[in-house]
Nucleic acid binder design. Structure first.
Lengths: 214, 214
DNA sequence: CAACCTTTTGACCATCTGGTCAAAAGGTTG
DNA sequence: CAACCTTTTGACCAGATGGTCAAAAGGTTG
């Protein structure tokens, strides 16, 4: 529909790019809200101001569109995982990681939600990616944690479970917003809420892991 | 179908009770796995070894059945929330709460998953319950935390965010099992995994909150 | 055992939804 | 501008799904 609101003479490549992107963006929103099964192609089409047939022209099937969204959002989700290295000190690296993760929950809640729903329902579409890409990332990060422990920069806690905890508690600021806002009694989470989350989590993780703050 | 495998002369009250319960139980499993929209009445019926029409005879509509499941599982989920009181010392109460929560994830993963999916998708069906029952619980628990802080039994952390963190990280052991098992490289989580979770979380929460262990 | 209530079940229906198609409209390129 | 390619779109379809219904089977109670 972008076509109708902008000038004539639009290049086909641009049309294709714009439409694909808009469909992906709207699809991400709708899928995040209603899940794969709860989403109709028509709902996405309406959000994108396009007829359903047009959406199916760009993405042959609903499943194909979903997978495209999933991949796109997964990249966002896994973005700053490799920032932690053996050389960096946990007191900086862990804090930074938590900050990044919560920022992500704030700025890309849909990525987090789609990802969470996918896993919640057994990770059918994601199983392979989890087994390869994420597993590699995970092992690498655990190795970094272990190296920190060996250098006695932190206590010998379980790297695996530490990561689970950080992931789940940071993601909660995206996934559970509906709950969080109700319990905090505000319409939406504001910057202070995210700051408070960062504050509590860094404090808890750093102290909990016995990271020397020297 | 229970009817066919057991003796004749079953009382109607029993039949009703048994069937309702079995339908609820199977429905909880299926809803947890596929979500509300992803679940068909027929799928539940098959799991319960009953014809679809029979399921609809007990629960007039799919939505009604879902709400029944939701309520049942919500009670499980909110079970041991009131164990923490101002009198109890955080070092015991917090540890116990974490233990209970993780046990719950282990024993009632479906309750957790259904609840999580519901919130993830905006808590349409739950909004009212969250605004009343859960909100009350939440405020009460936060008040307990505040009283502990006032007694200087722990550092002045944010009670709200502490609770968010405990909830999300304990629930993760139910909701994200599909991911956790893949990353740990085992078919299912075993007792040691849950123990490790308990260990890490109590350590992290107690140290993180500066709970005096005197 | 007989009149009555509850449960079971197959057949059926209206609606929704993912996906197809062909024709028209819009760009591209020599 | 003319032949050609890409995009747009309404109409259409087959299958799935929630829900209904009436008849049969199974309990209950005097």
């Amino acid at each position: 529909m972008a076509k109708k609101t902008s000038q004539p003479r639009r290049k086909l490549v641009d049309i294709r790019k714009d439409n694909s992107e808009q469909i992906l963006a709207e699809a991400a929103r709708v899928f995040a809200k209603h899940g794969f099964r709860g989403t109709t192609v028509n709902a996405i089409a309406e959000q994108a101001n396009l007829p359903k047939a047009n959406v199916l022209y760009y993405f042959k099937t609903k499943e194909g569109l979903y997978k495209a969204v999933l991949n796109q959002q997964l990249n966002i989700w896994m973005a700053n995982m490799d920032a932690m290295t053996s050389d960096s000190h946990p007191k900086d690296a862990l804090r930074q990681y938590i900050v990044d993760k919560i920022k992500q929950s704030k700025e890309h809640p849909n990525a987090s939600k789609i990802f969470a729903a996918e896993i919640l329902h057994g990770a059918e579409f994601l199983k392979e990616t989890l087994e390869t890409e994420l597993k590699d990332q995970f092992d690498r990060t655990c190795a970094v944690f272990r190296s920190w422990i060996q250098k006695q920069w932190m206590d010998p806690i379980s790297p695996e479970h530490l990561l689970f905890t950080i992931w789940s508690s940071t993601q909660a600021y995206a996934d559970y917003q509906a709950q969080t806002t109700i319990l905090l009694g505000k319409p939406v989470l504001d910057d202070d809420d995210f700051e408070a989350g960062i504050e509590l989590l860094t404090c808890m993780v750093l102290k909990g892991c016995g990271v020397r703050l020297v």
